[in-house]
Amino acid sequence: MSEPVLSVRNLRLDIPIGAGTLHAVRGIDFDLDRGETLCIVGESGSGKSLTSLAIMDLLGKRIERKADKLVFDGTDLTKAGARKMRALRGDRMAMIFQEPMTSLNPAYTIGDQLMEALLLHRKVGKAEARRRAVELLEKVGITGAERRLSQYPHQLSGGLRQRVMIAMALMCEPELIIADEPTTALDVTIQAQILRLLVDLTREMNVAMILITHDLGVVARVADKVAVMYAGELVEAGTAKKVFDAPMHPYTRGLLRCIPVPGKTERGSELGSIPGIVPSLVGEVSGCVFRTRCEEATEACRGEIPFRESADGRHNFRCVHEAGRRAGVEEPA
């Protein structure tokens, strides 16, 4: 197998605050191959967005990023300076944000903003950039592309703007696209269309994608790999099939009970919920962060928690219990 396009080992993000340090993200590991789609799942505040911004090096100055390994397409990002990162951003790695309504600059035309991505990274003329912009607008399904170039963001609907954002991310044919909840802010009727478009285009262009979402229905449809985050930790990661078929971590199981999955949730059965709230991450975090909400919690959960890797490394989870369940509890039929 070839080198993964993105390889992350033990990624940590600390935010110094008045009372101490907020350990926002602790020990994230994953590999992403070319053309593969990784879905990062987790509730609000679990560190999904921070993780993606950390890869792009778009965190504010206040957040400290540390990692044992952070290699993108042969470049060690932990050693890359601001200039190197600028050269990568928008060219080799691109990002699509959650809010299409505010993610485009209101003062410039769609065309200006699309072409900028190409003009910043390639030695091409305006005419060539314009041609590429039209081509991509057509690709993302915008009609009358030529005319749209001279329109301003406020003249476009949210769905169209998100299509523009997708086109913009693809301008330089990147290796990696990070989409941070790209459909959350859209009308439900548009969500599926945009997601389909994103998935189709990344497959067609063989672009790896990190899709951040809290919609497990989406994950089930598009993911090759899944990473489940809870309170800044990676609690379970693996191929989508394995995680969905045999969720190991109690939190993943809880999540799957919360959301109906087509073909998996029985009609008429009750949807679950996970009681409690996410603990504070200020100061030293020890033991399992999920133990206060976990139905499998035991005394051992206060101690060191191993990250259990399967033999082929394709399904890993972080739990003190060998099978993600308290000893002596029977697997429910």
């Binding site: 951003r89 944000f97 505010t102 209101p106 910043l120």
Partner: peptide, 11 residues
């Protein structure tokens, strides 16, 4: 957000 977009573009 659009400033973050500009940075993400490599500006």
């Amino acid at each position: 957000d659009y400033i973050r977009t500009a940075r993400a573009k490599g500006a």
